[in-house]
Amino acid sequence: MNDQLARTLFMEYLYDEISAEDQAKLESYLDKNPGLRQELSELRETRSLLQQMPDPDTPPQLLVMDPRNRTLLQWCREARQLLPHSLLGKSALAVAAGLILLLVVGSVAQLQVDASGDGVAISMGGSSPEEGEGLTAVEAEVLADEIRRENAVMMADYTEAINRQHRQQLQQLISYFQQQRIDDLQLVDQTLDAFQQTTHDRLLLTNRYLGEVLQTVRLQDQDQSISK
């Protein structure tokens, strides 16, 4: 073996792919050539350093979809992915869907709208609104007056009901405060009575104690005079 041949075996040796026979030959040769052993050691250290490299982040999962073989369920899943997720997007989609629905229904029902003349006329079923089928100006005026009157009556009823409700609430409030006041006065009266009674009892007690003291003093004076 020579240096060149030994180097050719380095890689197999480093990665454990060397045969036992070649390994024995190489190790024997390295024992006699410390320079080559040092070189091998440095290559091993280089490997160790390379192993320190962290793995890259996991990539997002790729997915292959064949459009020809797509099932209904897959279609639904994909369609759901396409729908907007924000509130604004959903609202816009709902409005758009509503308009489309209206157009479709209008088309099927042959909806016709006529804004000319005295007002707006809407009809369904294909025949256009005929002249004179609507209300005349006088009839419309009468109808409007009637609606206004009904509105006025309804507003008056409503106002009356509100006022009645307010009055009832106010009455209940007044009654509550009156009752509260009576209760408070009764409480004060009871407290004053109790206080007077207590004061009277204490006066009687005090007088009794004073009487006893006076009597004791008087008896002591008598005892002293007798002893003299």
Binding site: T8, E12, L43, T46, R47, L49, L50, Q52
Partner: peptide
């Protein structure tokens, strides 16, 4: 393949020596 790997590792070793990356990093 072995030859390319040998030269590749040797070159990396030289680079690491040049950059003073060896036992400290480990």
């Amino acid at each position: 393949v072995k030859s390319r790997l040998y030269y590749g590792l040797t070159k990396l070793r030289q680079l690491f020596n040049q950059w003073n990356i060896e036992s400290e990093a480990l």
